[in-house]
Design a protein around this nucleic acid. Structure first.
Length: 279
DNA sequence: ATGCCATACGTTGTATGA
């Protein structure tokens, strides 16, 4: 099973690239962030024609998350399960069960400036994600929390930490809030499969030739529950997708994160306590 | 200190991004 996540920075502007990437990368499940679409404008029929079911949670101009799957897509939950329907908040979370895996597509708020109201809201959102996992998922089951976390977990996850003094994405509080999510029972599988290396980065600023200078950040993560992480064969960033390539439309400023699993559970018991008890 | 580039919305610019 191939699982992937990609902040596309507008699905409308990136649809041709997403279609081309699905054809070549052949993921079974793809989480998308920053679709910047309302649900009515989400091109579900395009994915259907390619053999993928899909679900989307978006309201238009900003944010927007989706899950695209060719291994089933059930029990869809848009937003936090305990959202107030009268004030649902920004569309930044979508969950679905795909091929026995509980998949969460997440787009964590940017935070803008350390100490701003947006920064505080970012910390609150990450705390709420932790609570969501506690309330709706089992760390002994098959859970994949994938998306744009807008936090670089360690100093080696930015191109030059010396340039990030006082900046968002690297502050202690943001890293602690992310660690609280991970500590629920998840593995950062790209980090696990790139021991000792800087990055690999997933985002590069459009400006100043940052991509070609290697000035990036690793802020898009695939966080897998321990039983699922044990099945990972490869976990990598497809940085070629950040290149201009042959298409006329510009690329997203993010590259996809790809995870290959040796197998996936047909039932919760296949990967949960039963599997561990049976060796 | 700011723009660099790119998106959407909507109109000669503003808001947002990380």
């Amino acid at each position: 099973m191939r699982l992937a996540t990609w902040n596309v920075n507008s699905l409308k502007a990136r649809l041709a690239r997403v279609e081309a990437w699905l054809a070549t990368a052949q993921p079974d499940v793809l989480c998308l962030q920053e679709t910047k679409l309302a649900d009515e404008a989400f091109p579900g029929e395009v994915f259907e024609s390619l053999g993928y079911a899909s679900a989307h949670h978006g309201t238009g101009r900003w944010n927007g998350v989706a899950i695209v799957s060719r291994v089933g897509l059930d029990d869809v939950c848009a937003g936090f399960h305990d959202d107030d329907p009268s004030s649902p908040g920004e569309p930044r979370l979508l969950a679905a069960t795909c091929g026995g895996v509980r998949v969460l597509s997440v787009y964590v708020p940017n935070g803008r400036l350390v100490g701003s109201q947006f920064y505080e809201a970012k910390l609150d959102w990450l705390a709420r994600l932790r609570a969501e996992l506690e309330a709706t998922c089992d760390p002994n089951g098959a859970v994949a929390v994938c998306g744009d976390f807008n936090v670089a977990p360690e100093d080696r996850d930015v191109w030059d930490i010396g340039r990030f003094a006082g900046a968002t994405h690297v502050s202690e509080a943001e890293r602690a809030a992310l660690a609280r999510v991970v500590d629920w029972g998840l593995r950062d599988v790209v980090r696990d499969h790139a021991p000792g290396e800087a990055g690999p980065f997933t985002w590069w600023d459009y400006r100043g030739g940052a991509f070609h200078k290697g000035e990036g950040m690793r802020i898009d993560l695939a966080l897998l529950s321990d039983p699922l992480a044990a099945l990972v064969q490869r976990a990598f960033v497809d940085r070629d997708a950040r290149k201009k390539g042959a298409l006329s439309e510009p690329p997203s400023d993010h590259a996809p994160v790809v995870v290959d699993l040796a197998a996936w559970p047909s039932s919760p018991e296949a990967l949960g306590r039963g599997a561990r008890a049976g060796g």
